[in-house]
Amino acid sequence: MSTIAITGLRTFMGRRLAERLAAEPGLRLVGLDRLRPHGLAAGVHFREVDLTRPDAGSELADVFHKEEVDVVVHLAFRREPTPDLDGDHELETIGSLHVLHASAGAAVPRLVIGSSTMVYGPHLDNPNFLSEAHPLRGHPHAHCVQNRVETERLVADWAARHPACAVTVLRPCWIVGPTYRDAVTRYFGRQVVPTLMGYDPLLQFVHEEDCLDAFARAATSHHPGVYNVVAPGVLPLSTVLRTAGKRLLPVPPPILYRLRAYPSQAQTGDRPEGFYDYLRYLWVADGRRGWEAFGRPVYSTREAWMAAISSKRMRSYR
């Protein structure tokens, strides 16, 4: 009987992962979050912890110790950036630091951390496929990405100092699927989609179920290291939008980058570059290492995208 603790139980990944693992025999699930979630899955024990509080570290260590936690899955990250830049930093970076300290204090043998391939950053001089060893350059204007980059640095540093703990970092690319919603799917969900004139980068998606599979396998097996969680294949942005029947609105980058008060941008608290550069340059990750460790995804990039848009179409007919 092993015990798995999941931070960020109310996030999409946290909730779904807890539901999935709770259904498996021989696993005990402890869910941690700031507030009690609605409709807690059967078999998940809820513990209230606020990662933004200064004493969250010792509180967490207490929980890990009392529940005899064998695996910590750290998923308490914002699904999308918010205008509360300081709050995002407190939760994502400092919160992760609390989790690391608590894991060291309670001598947790295994730690799984969710990150994103966005940490590589969209850069002109990226190779077509970024391996896990590529430097994390992020994007200076995407504050949530910068938080993740900082978190990954903290984690790498901490893992080097705590060889007793097996640390697995998973970097999924943009997640799509029938039920997943965030700023990216909202962008793709518009009828008229602004794109950067003259740029048509290759994009990569992973289906929500494939992503959950990877996290579930990382939580239940021993695979220390960093892994990209991506689907095979790439799609040009124009194909992505056309297959969804969207209207493209190509805008010259200098004009688009000046639209700072643009409503969807104002919601993120970032300058437009922080999002639109990801639709300008390449940042496709190489998934081979992850496929070897956690199995090949069921959905390719194209299939994941098709699954996402077809479910959306069904919903609008309901």
């Binding site: 001089d125 190779p127 496929f129 004139m197 003259g198 740029y199 980068p201 980058p253």
Partner: peptide, 21 residues
Amino acid sequence: TLPFVQPALARLGGVRACREN
């Protein structure tokens, strides 16, 4: 770095010159 040129070249089989690629 050139807009329009880069997507066209990529579709014709052009790949950025770097060791990994």
